[in-house]
Nucleic acid binder design. Structure first.
Lengths: 186, 186
DNA sequence: GTTAAGATGTTTACACTGCAAACATTAATT
DNA sequence: AATTAATGTTTGCAGTGTAAACATCTTAAC
């Protein structure tokens, strides 16, 4: 016997949206299929999301949470090994969650500022990760430290983009050497 | 008096597709609007593109051509100034053609290998650019040189992704210092 | 505790989409 | 000149985003 009200429809919708977006790509997600999956009428999701883009934003936010969990290393001061592992985890996340990653960094959600919750989640994630990185990239100068962190991030982010399109260029590299070289640490 | 056959429909379709994809994002492109713009029946485009994804592939290929023109520097041996300018041009291209860039590096065209012309164009572009870069990043060792080129590319590519989402983090940096630092020159 | 209001669901409707199939016209090849 | 291939049109289907009007349940106010 099912009641008129679902109870926690929004969460269920997001959960399924995440699954579809990652498995088939976000263009394959339809509000209607979403509704059907929760045994709810076609337009019920519109009580929780004004537009489809808001669903995308929710999925992207979840993506940032997952990224955080995948990359963060519990430590006050990262060792080199931690650092390499963390970098590896970032790239792996990007490759193994390609469609979600695309949603997070592509143009599907055009203007983050329209989705305050997404902005908050994304900021929280990156502040934590940069802070985490900083404990390895120790440097007196604050600006240089920030610059290094961003550069490492850009490098990893860029690597994800490149490795995803193997067909463009066959890339063989050892992550460790590359990062070390870019950071000019021994 | 218009003739039954258009003449060069395919080119016209691609041209308009590029405009729409860049202006509104590729999700806004419809085969039908494309057809209408060329004063041709709704399904005429299907004589030239089997699926919508093939249209995307064509737009992406055009994107790689434009990227090449924007970034390539005519010179046998890049000066530092050339190199910086070229890097700047890459980032500018990514920022000012955000939607096209997304089409080129995102997941809209799922499998490049399904679109041989796109693979060819993308490869040509990157071979040229890497070769161009190499003339600045001179190094005895071939592998190190390749590694450096890829790293520079990844760094630039990553920067585009990050700068696009200013809302995530306010990034202030001087391109020159950053690249130089990453390359540990000077 | 009854009631009014707000949240959350349903139904219906509209204009639009990708794309398949059957057909028409023209261009190219023999 | 006749056949074939290329390129166009018409029609049709199943699916889409989302607006509007309506129903039901939950919650807060009295």
């Amino acid at each position: 016997m099912k009641s008129y009200h679902h109870g926690n429809l929004k969460e269920e919708l997001i959960k399924y949206a995440c699954t579809i977006c990652e498995r088939d790509g976000y263009t394959k997600l339809s509000i209607r299929s979403l509704a059907k999956e929760s045994n709810v009428s076609q337009t019920a999701p519109y009580r929780h999301f004004k537009t489809k883009e808001e669903v995308y934003a929710a999925v992207a936010a979840e993506g940032f949470n997952k990224l955080y969990k995948a990359v963060f290393v519990e430590s006050d001061k990262l060792t080199l090994k931690d650092f390499i592992q963390s970098s590896k985890n970032y790239i792996d996340f990007g490759l193994q969650n390609a469609n979600t990653y695309d949603l997070m960094f592509g143009t599907a959600v055009g203007d983050f500022s329209q989705h305050p919750e997404l902005v908050e989640t994304a900021n929280k994630t990156f502040e934590s990760l940069v802070l985490n990185l900083s404990s390895f990239l120790k440097d007196k100068d604050e600006d240089i430290l920030a610059g290094k962190s961003i550069t490492v991030w850009a490098l990893l982010h860029g690597m994800v983009g490149i490795l995803r399109k193997q067909s463009i260029t066959e890339v063989t590299f050892t992550l460790k050497n590359l990062v070390l070289w870019a950071l000019q640490e021994e």
